[in-house]
């Protein structure tokens, strides 16, 4: 029997449209974590599942070429972010991981509360994205 190359037009078109919605949702979850359910962990998991949908709809080689990111390095960047926010507060004479917040006036957004909890959450986000995708991709490329 001749092996026919499968044609997943509907799958790939649908994945392309869905990716933007899921990535926007994950960034919303990351930024909304201060005042409502959400935060770095679940936002990172949503980003990981968006990239996982890309890997499912296309194949490993295509996505590795279009997203040339080593996800192990992403874990390191996240840990660096999370620990540096603690060290910065140490430099000003406060205990490790002291949180600061202030209200700023940003054009188009108005009065915004900016805290140093956001870089820490960003670190959590990067660690979760990196470790989830590292686990999945390591298992996936194991068999060949």
């Amino acid at each position: 029997m001749k092996q026919v190359k499968p044609n997943d037009v509907m799958l790939q078109t649908f994945a392309r449209m869905l990716i933007f919605i899921i990535l926007a949702f994950s960034i919303y979850l990351l930024l909304a974590g201060h005042n409502s359910p959400g935060g770095g962990f679940i936002g990172g998991l949503m980003t990981a599942s968006a990239i996982l949908i890309l890997y499912l709809a296309f194949d490993m080689k295509t996505i590795r070429k279009s997203i040339p990111i080593d996800f192990v390095k992403i874990i390191g960047i996240g840990l660096l972010f999370a620990s540096l926010t603690g060290v910065v507060s140490m430099l000003f004479g406060f205990p490790y991981l002291t949180q600061f917040f202030d209200y700023f006036h940003i054009p188009l957004l108005g009065e915004v509360e900016l805290t140093t909890a956001l870089p820490f959450d960003l670190g959590v986000y990067f660690v979760v994205v990196g470790s989830a995708l590292t686990i999945i991709l390591t298992i996936a490329e194991d068999d060949n």
Partner: peptide, 17 residues
């Protein structure tokens, strides 16, 4: 998505050619 892909192709994430 993942389960039906596993049923049809035998691999969840294809290695590509």
């Amino acid at each position: 998505f993942a389960l039906s892909k596993f049923l049809e192709r035998g691999a969840v994430i294809e290695p590509g050619d």
